[in-house]
Design a protein around this nucleic acid. Structure first.
Lengths: 248, 248
DNA sequence: CTTTCACTCCATCATAAGTTAAATCGCGCA
DNA sequence: TGCGCGATTTAACTTATGATGGAGTGAAAG
């Protein structure tokens, strides 16, 4: 889709992101780092709300988020959408495409988003050669699955306000882990309609829930910046326990 | 928990289940089969509604379902429960425990359920030695994640009747794939309260939705046997598309 | 045969969330 | 400065689902 290829960029930065991310959830050796740094990346920047991978595509490469956010989503017959997960710097949203060839969901860039592509063939070679790194990547996909299960609990058993609070908590922890957030604030590049699609709500009710969190004094959200004023309060209404993120 | 150890049973059957399952979603070589058959399994039978693995446990083994069903679930502060996924013969519900050490959910046997345990150490040795099998197992965990995402869509964007229909469709396809269901009928060993916990509903509303499916003439459910009278109708209200199960 | 128990089913009322539409805000742009 | 457009906010109303309590049912146990 839309993009501006940056063929001239050095491919050191992407490796650093991936290393930082993997180190946050697993033990990574010097050899693993070297192997990651030897990968060859192609960096591209996508404009807001453009598709990185389409539903039904058969990708030949994985992508690594370097800047901005991306999300996976699927559209339904009646025009509704469901956003499954958000991906932030260091994440590889479509690593599963190594094993499951046709993408059953689309991958979309929110706002301006920079990603680095790695060829499947390179990833496969790496995985064959370096078992410990393969295990770390497998582990990463398993953590992605635990986040998905947490989403199931949210949608199944939490009310709208709790769901939203939970998402705000999770994203803060994840962003802070890779050094993109601090001091209980971060850039949340989502419209309320997108929040609604992620939380299984209508956009009107997403707005109501957000107001509720503001009225409680837990957060403010203004000009795409989320500020958490009362972490403990937010954590409580969310019933948030970061254990499922498996951050070491 | 409850159980009757059967130390005398030969360990051929468990391997056969696993092989059948993996063959349904990936290419499995003769060498892979041989390696699976060389694993040593410990078979145990659990009574109805007993815990196989507790929330918070640090298991030293994986379990393979051979007969019956199991589910993963978590309880919330207010006493509500969420069931994340059901597991049927051939499935390894807790293969993730190889990489994520503390179980953040419990694993429960429904009705009488027979499982086979394999020591983590044996699984790790196998994975190190046989890369192609490791990839097949990784792939299997990724398919588990796609099922989880489908659950997210259900809870987020489908109404109660559609959610239930979707579950009925998924379980039929999965059971048929491993040869445990046929002819549009199968044993559904769940109470309506358990159905509700899986679908994010109250048990009263699960009952209403079930009545609705009966009234539409799509299914009957009597004495734990589900009969699908109108597959196309069920598939339509469910918006069910089996692609996400990645059955080859 | 009775008792018990778990499950199913049903009626009623309460409430969270969806729908629609319109008003308002904020920002980029002419 | 004022226009235009998307995003946010508010309101009025509808609907799906939750909560409670109680009545049927059937199988197992005594």
């Amino acid at each position: 889709m839309s993009d501006d290829p940056d063929p001239g960029l050095p491919s050191v930065a992407p490796a650093a992101w991936l290393i930082r991310k993997l180190k946050s959830t697993a033990q990574i050796s010097a050899r693993d780092c070297a192997d990651i740094e030897n990968l060859s990346f192609t960096v591209r920047t996508f404009g807001g709300r453009t598709s990185i991978v389409h539903e039904g595509d058969v990708p030949k490469q994985c992508c690594l988020v370097m800047d901005g956010w991306a999300y996976r989503c699927r559209s339904l017959a009646n025009g509704q959408r469901q956003i499954f997960a958000f991906y932030v710097p260091g994440d590889i949203p479509d690593i599963e495409s190594l094993h499951l060839h046709v993408m059953d969901q689309g991958l979309v860039a929110i706002a301006q988003t920079t990603v680095a592509f790695v060829a499947h063939s390179d990833m496969r070679a790496l995985i064959e050669r370096n078992t410990s790194l393969a295990m770390a990547l497998w582990r990463d996909t398993l953590i992605d699955a635990t986040r998905c299960r947490e989403r199931v609990i949210s949608l199944g058993r939490r009310q709208a306000v709790g769901r939203m609070a939970h998402l705000f908590c999770e994203m803060y922890i994840r962003l802070r882990t890779v050094g993109v957030a601090d001091d209980f604030r971060y850039v949340l590049p989502l419209t309320q309609a997108e929040l609604a699609d992620a939380l299984g709500l209508s956009s009107v009710h997403a707005n109501r829930s957000l107001q509720e969190l503001r009225k409680l004094g837990f957060v403010t959200l203004h000009r795409r910046e989320l500020i958490i004023h009362d972490w403990d309060g937010l954590e409580t209404v969310a019933e948030f326990d970061p254990a499922y993120l498996h951050i070491v």
